[in-house]
């Protein structure tokens, strides 16, 4: 038994990655004080992409409708606010709860089918939600969007300022907390089962583990994360538009996930930050051709770094090991 090496502790690596996200956020706060609106949108979108990663990267179910859960969380939080709920933390809780319920229903529908039909079903669902939001203008503001959100200071103490500092720190702290909780979950026994299900659900069944309940739980969890992101976006921008429940938003989330590397929480975050950061820089520099440039960049990444940008870290480590610069454990 002595020959078997001790189990590597994954939590230390997670802590380092979490610290890196925190540092990147703080650096953004200092370096881009005039772009905190964008930084906050990156943080709230990261919730969407991370939630997508749970379903797609971990559980292996491709969806092009994830924004439905994000947007429903945003609408729920906004409506709660218009009904008198000012506390932003509670608004995020409302968004998360709405997203969780939506995720459960979404999962229950989507899991009835498989493969390509399943993917089409996710598109149909997000279009349905989009159309419903368009029609139910009393609670969604229709195509004008829902505005008039008036947020109270966080815990009665931290007022949202004009520069968006409070909003960004709020989003960042919640993102870090969510990532911390999720990193524990994906490493837990349930998380291990989930990763296995994502690769071969049939094999997991022959081990005696039911797959469908685990997937429903995952959709619910994913919905909660997406809904929280939607609520944070509603809080920080003060409006909820139809685009937040759109197919386009869902597809962009998938692009960001692939860019960063699916099946890794931090890949999802990195993909969001890189994509939205580049998008912003390129669209400012070249307002006419930016989409083409972004498209070409994406193709390059998908062709040459198929496992996403975060896989590069491992490649660099391996290279260093090859050149003897770093002692590799193996």
């Amino acid at each position: 038994m002595s020959a078997v090496t001790a189990r590597p502790s994954p939590l230390r690596g997670d802590f380092i990655k979490l610290a890196a996200v925190a540092l990147a956020g703080l650096a953004a706060l200092v370096l881009f004080p005039n772009d905190l609106g964008l930084m906050t949108r990156i943080a709230s979108s990261a919730f969407l992409v991370v939630s997508l990663d749970l379903v797609t990267g971990y559980a292996g179910i491709a969806t092009l409708g994830q924004a439905a859960l994000f947007g429903l969380g945003a609408y729920a939080a906004a409506n709660a606010n218009l009904a008198g709920l000012g506390e932003p933390i509670l608004m995020v809780a409302v968004g998360g709860l709405a997203g969780a319920v939506a995720g459960l229903i979404f999962g229950a529908v989507v899991l009835r089918s498989r493969g390509l039909a399943q993917l089409v079903l996710t598109i149909a669902l997000v279009q349905l939600v989009h159309e419903a939001a368009n029609k139910l203008s009393d609670i969604t503001g229709g195509s004008d969007g829902l505005s008039g959100i008036d947020v109270a200071p966080i815990l009665g103490a931290f007022r949202f300022d004009l520069y968006g500092r409070t909003g960004f720190v709020f989003a960042l702290v919640l993102l870090l907390a969510t990532l911390a909780v999720l990193s524990v979950i994906v490493r837990s026994p349930f998380g291990l089962k989930l990763r296995a299900i994502g690769r071969d659900p049939g094999r997991v069944r022959t081990l005696g583990a039911a797959v469908m309940p685990a997937l429903l739980v995952t959709f619910t969890l994913s919905g909660a994360v997406a809904g929280m992101g939607g609520a944070i976006e509603a809080i920080s921008t003060g409006v909820v538009g139809l685009d937040s429940v759109s197919f386009e938003r869902s597809a962009m989330a998938l692009v960001m996930l692939v860019l960063g590397g699916s099946g890794s929480l931090y890949g999802a975050v990195a993909g969001t930050a890189v994509f939205m950061g580049l998008e912003s820089i390129i669209s400012a520099a070249n307002p006419f051709h930016w989409l083409i440039i972004v498209g070409v960049l994406l193709i390059v990444v998908v062709l040459f770094v198929p496992r996403g940008l975060t896989s590069l870290a491992g490649d660099v480590r391996r290279l260093l090991a090859i050149f003897g610069l770093r002692r590799d454990k193996r």
């Binding site: 502790s9 837990s188 081990l207």
Partner: peptide, 20 residues
């Protein structure tokens, strides 16, 4: 191997436990 062991001992529904 851990997955199979956890499944046999009915622990794959634990969300926050550390396998290590």
């Amino acid at each position: 191997i851990e997955l199979a062991l956890l499944q046999r001992t009915k622990r794959t529904n634990q969300f926050f436990a550390a396998i290590g």
